[in-house]
């Protein structure tokens, strides 16, 4: 560390002027891209206070016009179209909770099993996990649709979560994490008379806490924003989730633009708040696949 600082100081002393110049250029470039990333949030917020007719006539634009801005659109979320937006919100919350808890619990079991035990078929199963990660779920939509119809779970929460109950990415993540668990604990637990499952629940699961944190957030984000499958599995208006409900408001001849922007803003808000509270957990889940390969 000391050596590193020394050498960087030495380089800095060599050409101080050029260093300062590049540092400012880097800062400026990062600033421009950050503005590009953040500005849509600002515009959506501004647009959500304007009447929908304004949006149709002028599109999203730069103007802040206090004279035509009001909280009216947010009130409409509760009263417009018999409060359908609240239904969508409730569905999104419940589906996200259900899908995340089922998916995280089951994939933790599987990932742990693949990492800790050596048993016939283990490698084939792991290869299956990797292959499935490569196959786009969209290809399977037709038979999955037929299956959910036959199982009579079309247009229900169960139907929406069916293709995501053991997400291969989460299995992969938990396996990578569980590979680092101390195996001595397994033997210690057995000597103490713990069952194999007791060892998992009482000894190993607490050690896997960081992995749970990362996967819960990624899964919840995925579930909250998921579009393609829910679009097929949900039929009736009051069973829709937020992304599908919102997209139905964009219908070309509809007159729902007042709801659209405020609805979009409120649908992003909970995730943004969670992110601001705990940024590390959001980011750490992403990196396991990239580094371990």
């Amino acid at each position: 560390m000391a050596y590193q600082m020394e050498s960087s100081i030495r380089i800095e002393q060599k050409k101080p002027r050029k260093k300062a110049w590049t540092r400012w250029a880097i800062f400026l470039i990062l600033l421009i891209f950050s503005v590009f990333a953040l500005i849509p949030f600002y515009f959506m917020l501004v647009a959500s206070f304007k009447p929908g007719s304004e949006l149709i006539r002028y599109g999203i634009n730069l103007k802040v016009q206090p004279d035509i801005m009001s909280w009216k659109n947010y009130g409409l979320l509760f009263t417009g179209k018999e409060g359908i937006y609240l239904h969508w919100y409730k569905n999104s919350v419940l589906i996200t909770l259900l899908q995340t808890s089922v998916a995280v619990f089951l994939s933790a079991l599987v990932g742990y099993g693949l990492a800790i035990y050596r048993f016939p078929g283990r490698n084939i199963l792991f290869i299956a996990v990797l292959v499935v990660m490569m196959v786009p779920i969209e290809i399977m939509m037709l038979p999955l649709y037929e299956l959910t119809v036959r199982l009579r779970i079309i247009d229900t929460y169960a139907g929406v979560i069916l293709p995501f109950v053991v997400p291969p990415f989460a299995v992969f993540f938990f396996r990578q994490f569980a590979l680092g668990l101390p195996r001595d604990l397994l033997d210690a637990g057995r000597i103490d008379g713990c069952s194999e499952y007791g060892i998992f629940f009482k000894i190993m699961m607490p050690l896997m806490k960081p992995a749970f944190g990362a996967i819960i957030i990624l899964q919840a984000m995925f579930s909250w924003n998921n579009l393609v499958w829910p679009l097929i599995a949900l039929r009736s208006n009051e069973h829709m989730t937020l992304p599908i409900g919102l997209s139905s408001l964009i219908a070309p001849y509809g007159n729902n633009y007042d709801l659209l922007m405020s609805g979009a803003v409120l649908s992003v808000l909970p995730i943004v708040i969670l992110f601001i509270l705990n940024q590390k957990a959001f980011i750490s889940g992403l990196t396991v696949g990239a580094v371990k390969e």
Binding site: L38, M221, N225, L246, S247, A264, V268, I283
Partner: peptide, 15 residues
Amino acid sequence: LFMPALTSVIVAGIF
């Protein structure tokens, strides 16, 4: 720079 990843395609698409 990470914030946009939090939005759904639909919300981003509306913008």
